[in-house]
Write a protein that binds this DNA or RNA. Sequence first.
DNA 1: ATCGGCTCGCGCAA
DNA 2: TGCGCGAAGCCGAT
Length: 441
Amino acid sequence: MQSGNCGDGPVVYWMSRDQRTNDNWALLWAQQEAIIRGKGLIVIFCLISDYLKASSAHYSFMLDGLEQTKISLEKNNISFYLLKEDPTVIIPHFLIDIDAHLLVCDFDPLRIKQQWKENLAKKLAVPIFEVDTHNIIPVWIASDKKEYAAYTLRPKINRLIDEFLTEIPSITPHPIIWESADRLFNRYHTALFDLANRSSFSRKSIEAGEKIATEVAQNFIDKRLSSYSNHRNNPCLNGQSGLSPYLHFGQLSAQRLALQVTSIKTTNAQSKEEFLEELIVRKELADNYCYYEKQYDQFEAFPNWAQQSLNAHRKDKRDYIYSFEQLEEGGTHEELWNACQRDLVKNSKLHGFLRMYWAKKILEWTPSPEIALEYSISLNDRYSLDGRDPNGYAGIAWSIGGVHDRAWKERPIFGKVRYMNEAGCRRKFKTKQYIESIQPR
DNA sequence: ATCGGCTCGCGCAA
DNA sequence: TGCGCGAAGCCGAT
């Protein structure tokens, strides 16, 4: 937070990472402040074109969700405005225009979001507040440094979890109506959801929005949580929750999900524990990594042992070298890998276990770790619905650079970075069945 | 099927 | 300063 001059207009919540009305602490906090100060409350969202190479499928998923969120906000007397410009340009004008009282943001550790907020803080007269409603324990409270691995963050989370994993109040109809809302609507309505006629956008493979996110979560808890432990690493069994797109876009609250899972009494205890480990420790570790490691997508972010080891193996002979395009179209010599790539492109997601194998092969089949990082991130961000997420950057850094992992027996190209291959997959599941389940193009 | 070795450094106890 | 311990796998021996 910083001091500033509060105007007489409404409190503004700039929604960005957490695209939901319910279970949103940033919105709740904004409403509380608005009520205390006797002000109206509005929500804005800045729509950037070509955001971190997002594809039409991402925009489609996001805009579908935002349309629903807009409706539920309006039911609660909270106007929603979609601003189609760079936030560092449009927000200062917008806030002056409406004589805003406060600006509330949600938290995001990615560089572009942090830069936006830094630039805004310099330009704005009104105070800015940032609320972490993506993590259960705000990143800066869970730990004040870049954690070395899950085992160093886990005890810190465990110490705080009871304090933060609490029930979340409901949003209530905002009692103070801001008079100028209609005037503003006309001015900023430009092309509001005209993208809804998204004929050029690709067919939806996954339904979006808060409502469906809640249903998918409930269905997972009811039907598949109990077998999570046994099925999670088998891509043929639909053993994972499939919730990461909803979590990524903030259409589902991680805290709500954790509350639901925690309160389940009858399920398999190990499954419950492992799912909560993924949902809380692993996910919040990824945010910790991106927040405290500004070069989260670079070789320099890797631990020293991995950098040294990868450096020592730079000149190792690569039996296969593929270009970005060859990888992108799934044209390697390994059918399992090609199936993974096709799966990613066609279905906008890749199974959690296969992602590790997928990224490790890119390290093996490209000229350098830097190129492997670039290609993996590029493919993941472009095709995966949960791309451009700390989970993705941390997962790829784990695969290629040993981030949050330990050193293993030294071998060519990988050095001491953990090796994975198709043989390991064959030991774990029926790779043939998986390959056949992904139709060739 | 199951087991052990591979390897490093954090964080705590002393 | 020393040491216990973790960490989403591989591989070869049994």
